[in-house]
């Protein structure tokens, strides 16, 4: 097991350096001079151009620039935003909890609904429930979530006037951020109605974000269950007279979980990509909206730093999933 962990950690290092190179290279290698682009249609005078080149260090050799960037990253220095003049690192961590909260609620929702749906479909293979659930899952899987979000806004907020569609909480409430998670903070604040307001703000965005992972988890659970249900030990368990609920729920589900865990781990990337759209539509002050805004503002240090941090987060989650996978499934450690 130790060898497996070490070898997995060793592959992490070159990937990390690669991600650093990519996020560094984007601004410098691809066509378009960032200073000209930043200046926009007004243009920039020659003297000011030179000044800016020196300020950003574009006149030094690329290797030196990369080395500065890379050592900066290792020390938690991602540069400062052109627009807000705040360190990118600080901005990232002040916004990250909002995205994490949204994504966590979404993935919990997806798991809580997706796994039972998949099990029910597999147990009723070919019958009405199976067809209905799997058709729904396929629609969810094909859903353009930005449109789905707009539809839900029209139906629930427009016609029923029910949940609010922007921000984390009503402006009525104000309290210090203790943990950065709005749900926990609002509870801790002890203000009447604060937590309820936070929940109401979270319902629509998290449901929208959960849609695609929910469908993927349901489909994967069903096919994993079907595969396991055909195994000999399931027949043995049935033959010795165990209750069907026990056979399906304990014997089969436990072994069907292995591929499902992989899919859950892989959906982190999907979630973050979905968060970009969801946060933009619901004005959710998280990483996704921050990145989109920075891209439109040509705030390159933020784009570069944000890209790196998001990639790093996905890599760390994948690493943890891989290690867990090795823990659950001893077969994989040998490779």
């Amino acid at each position: 097991m130790l060898r497996y962990i070490l070898s997995r950690l060793l592959t992490f290092i070159p990937t990390f350096i690669g991600v650093c190179i990519i996020s560094f290279a984007f601004i410098r290698v691809l066509p378009g001079d960032p200073i000209i682009v930043m200046a926009g249609e007004r243009g920039v005078s020659d003297e000011r151009y030179q000044e800016l080149v020196e300020q950003f260090g574009f006149d030094r050799p690329v290797v030196v620039q990369f080395w500065d960037f890379f050592t900066g990253v290792l020390q938690g220095d991602l540069g400062t935003s052109y627009v807000t003049k705040r360190p990118v690192w600080d901005e990232f961590f002040s916004l990250f909890p909002a995205t994490l909260e949204l994504s966590l609620v979404a993935i919990i929702l997806a798991i809580a609904l997706g796994i039972p749906a998949g099990v029910i479909a597999a147990v009723n293979r070919g019958k009405f429930f199976d067809r209905a659930l799997m058709s729904t899952a396929l629609v969810g899987y094909s859903m353009p979530i930005f449109w789905w979000a707009l539809l839900l806004i029209i139906v629930f907020s427009g016609n029923l006037g029910w949940p609010p569609v922007s921000d984390l909480i009503d402006l009525l409430y104000y309290f210090e951020a203790e943990t950065g998670f709005m749900l926990i903070d609002s509870l801790l604040s002890g203000q009447e109605g604060a937590c309820k307001s936070a929940v109401r703000h979270l319902i629509l965005p998290s449901f929208v974000l959960a849609t695609v992972p929910l469908a993927v988890i349901a489909r994967q659970t069903r096919s994993a269950m079907l595969e396991v249900l055909g195994e000999d030990y399931i027949r043995t368990a049935r033959a010795k007279g165990l209750a069907p609920a026990r056979v399906n729920g304990v014997h089969a589900l436990r072994n069907a979980m292995i591929p499902v865990i992989t899919v859950i781990g892989l959906s982190v990337g999907t979630l973050l990509a979905g968060a970009i759209l969801t946060e933009t539509i619901f004005s959710w002050p998280g990483i996704g909206k921050w990145m989109v805004d920075s891209i439109f503002r040509r705030d390159y240090p933020v784009v570069q730093g944000g890209l790196l941090m998001v990639a790093l987060f996905v890599m760390v989650v994948n690493l943890i999933v891989d290690l867990l996978y090795g823990l659950i499934n001893p077969k994989i450690r040998k490779r």
Binding site: T11, P14, T15, G18, V19, I22, F26, I27, L30, P31, G32, G269, T270, L272, A273, G274, I276, L277, M291, V292, I295, F296, R298, V303, L307, V310, A311, V314, M315, N318
Partner: peptide
């Protein structure tokens, strides 16, 4: 395969968004 791992570790829509922002 390492290069592919690197590309896969960045959420697809984000990577596409940044690429388009730079290409125009």
């Amino acid at each position: 395969m390492r290069i592919m791992d690197i590309i896969l570790s960045i959420p697809s829509l984000l990577l596409a968004l940044v690429l388009v922002a730079i290409l125009g």
